[in-house]
Design a protein around this nucleic acid. Structure first.
Lengths: 297, 297
DNA sequence: GTAATCTGATATGTAATATATATCAACGCA
DNA sequence: TGCGTTGATATATATTACATATCAGATTAC
């Protein structure tokens, strides 16, 4: 059974006249009769009653007519849906992002994107960088926002969308709080609060190396997985923390922020997706995010 | 777009390999590639990403896959449904019946039919004979149970399923109640309760004619559209009534029934349907009813 | 580095089949 | 009875889906 049979059948069922039906589907009457006969034979049921004077539907024909119409509608709908998805008017994207990304322009960009692309459903998933890389490979997310510092990006496309320097978060009573800017060298023997090494091994090592190069040996007093935790620990006087500059938004009594003088890696956020991905909706999203990105040029 | 395209597409989408997919649908790889290309061209969207090493679905392809599977399922379902209707395993019948039919074997027959044909939905509609004839012509009912006495049955098929004589319903204090059987001639000058002439003109006239032939001129005191009304009127002493024998089931204080001696038309119930109807479910129902009919042979 | 192998695409011939033309058979109507 | 209408049948034709052979790009193996 082919779609053609359904089209022909519907024409005959609606006209109840082979000649007119044939005209309607732009073929001659004999092949139409033939095709209907083929259809009936395949189904093993008579769809029409032919009385030489009047054609009428059998019960089976009436039932089949409803189904045939429905199927035809669905075929057209499926085609239209595929086209919509193809041009990015329809879609579903799951996006991973690291927690700090929430403090950036990103949510605004996504809100704006949702408004102008109501057909594209975006699901956000808070995930660490490594988890996002796995999720990308597994296809659980189509795009991620992560700290890509020295990660392996084979088979991936990455676009840096934000970078900011580290600043120092200090208890306001700390001896270094009186300085406008703090040189790295001054941090020798300070108690540090830093993210756990496993979340960003390369970045972690690089920071330690930079400190060493500046002649200071930091003591890692405490690990903090989120910026909020880190600031809380600083406020409690547990130590000092290296945090991205955007963290300054999080005002907290007893904590002051100071720029750092010296060579430290820059904190970055990158938009990452799979190479060779074929998704118009995804590229629309990527374009929007990159356009809104606030990188120094 | 034809069903074939959907079958091919699903095969490729599931195998993600043109060669294997071709094998699965029993054609060679080149025509399969060709057909998929045709499909993509018709849709105006790429459904697959061909990377010389790996075939993968595009977003549009993934969306289309869901629809294609659904459509194919529906096509198979439609075929199965048509076959079921064709062999009478599935169907919907609206049946008209006159009120007196409810006092007969008919409801039992229908109950039994419903039990053994759960796929066939039967709707009952209480209608007078003339209304049923109209409804048959209009297609509002497919079959009717009616009093067909001398009605025009052109284009219809009728099968008598029940016949019974008239009996006389009398007030128990009536002078004729003492008789075992009442000759028609004894009814002269009695007050009659009869159905309205418009419901069965021919039958009505025939009854009057029979009375006249027996030398009695009945006075039609009162019309009654239902047997219950007629019996109630008899009980109230308004007159005597001619009712079908089966009415005796309806015992009522103050009313007695007596057979009539003489020539009166027989009350009959007929099963009527349209000539040339092509409905397995309907014929199943007709067969059941006729089989259960209780006619003297 | 080159051959071997695998992938899907292309080119072209062939077979299947959907369609067109011509005609028929059955029925209704004048 | 002849004429017009209906759908079915017979046969020819054109389309097209498919098969065969081959190619081009990519990966793997030696």
């Amino acid at each position: 059974m082919e779609v053609r049979h359904l089209r022909y059948f519907i024409a005959v069922a609606e006209e109840l006249h082979f000649g007119r039906a044939a005209q309607r589907v732009n073929i001659c009457q004999p092949p139409l009769s033939q095709q209907i006969k083929d259809l009936e034979q395949e189904l093993g049921v008579a769809l029409f009653c032919r009385n030489h004077k009047k054609v009428s539907l059998t019960d089976a024909g009436a039932a089949f007519l409803e189904d045939a119409r429905d199927i035809l509608r669905r075929v057209e709908l499926a085609a239209e849906r595929a086209r919509s998805v193809g041009r990015g008017a329809l879609g579903r994207i799951t996006m991973g992002l690291v927690l700090p990304a929430l403090d950036t322009f990103l949510l605004d960009a996504i809100r704006e994107f949702r408004a102008s692309n109501p057909g594209i459903e975006i699901q956000l998933l808070e995930l660490g960088t490594l988890a996002q890389l796995k999720a990308l490979a597994a296809g659980d997310i189509q795009v991620g926002v992560m700290r890509l510092f020295q990660q392996d990006t084979k088979g991936l496309v990455a676009e840096r969308i934000l970078e900011e320097p580290y600043v120092l978060a200090l208890p306001s009573k700390h001896r270094l709080a009186s300085l406008k800017e703090v040189p790295i060298g001054a941090l020798d023997n300070e108690s540090f609060i830093l993210f756990p090494r496993r979340t960003h091994p390369a970045l972690y090592d690089k920071i330690i190396a930079c400190c060493s190069a500046a002649g200071c040996t930091p003591t890692i007093e405490q690990e903090a997985t989120t910026k909020v935790t880190a600031i809380a620990l600083v406020a409690a006087g547990i130590g000092i923390a290296l945090v991205p500059a955007s963290t300054r938004k999080q005002h907290r009594f007893g904590v002051v922020y100071r720029p750092i003088l010296g060579d430290l890696p820059v904190v970055e956020l990158s938009l990452v997706w799979k190479e060779g991905t074929e998704s118009a909706a995804l590229y629309k999203l990527i374009d929007t995010v990159i356009e809104r990105s606030i990188l120094p040029i």
